[in-house]
């Protein structure tokens, strides 16, 4: 599991923000972040504040979900999946309005223990209201006890 993904995305987000509190999805260019975008996802918040839904996702992160991700709400994903734990703090990020990174372990439905690191970053189209969340997560299975 690569800890740097979280920090690289955080650094990238901060660079886009500049002096502002939030960056906009209009400023996120997947082509400019080839070593990160695969593990990223975007949540739309406006109109779905209680249950944001997935609007975009990188190639890597979608390989960890058993069914199509785009268009589904965060509530559809249980904490026995990488994407479920990665978005489990979405409400906290919306409430506090700042990036939050989490790392822990979860148990997959097949009993496999998995360590993960994730981050959620607030995004805004108008610079004030949070309109979406940019997230990323990676993980590795724990072998043995």
């Amino acid at each position: 599991m690569e800890r740097r993904l979280v920090l690289r995305l955080r650094t990238h987000w901060r660079a886009i923000c500049g002096e502002r509190d939030y960056s906009s999805f209009a400023e996120v260019d997947p082509a400019a972040m080839p070593n990160m975008w695969g593990s990223c996802f975007a949540l739309e918040v406006i109109g779905h504040e209680e249950d944001p839904f997935f609007r975009a996702a990188g190639d890597e992160i979608v390989t960890y979900v058993p069914s199509p991700l785009i268009g589904t709400p965060v509530s559809a994903w249980t904490p026995d999946t990488l994407i479920g734990v990665a978005v489990s703090h979405a409400r906290d990020v919306l409430r506090k309005g700042v990036p939050m990174s989490h790392g822990d372990e979860f148990m997959k439905i097949d009993g496999t223990r998995v360590l993960y690191l994730s981050i959620l970053l607030p995004m805004s189209d108008d610079g004030e209201t949070i309109s979406g969340l940019l997230g990323a997560a990676n993980c590795r299975a724990v072998l043995g006890d």
Partner: peptide, 8 residues
Amino acid sequence: SYFDDRDS
């Protein structure tokens, strides 16, 4: 920001 990992 918040982290729950000290190194990060």
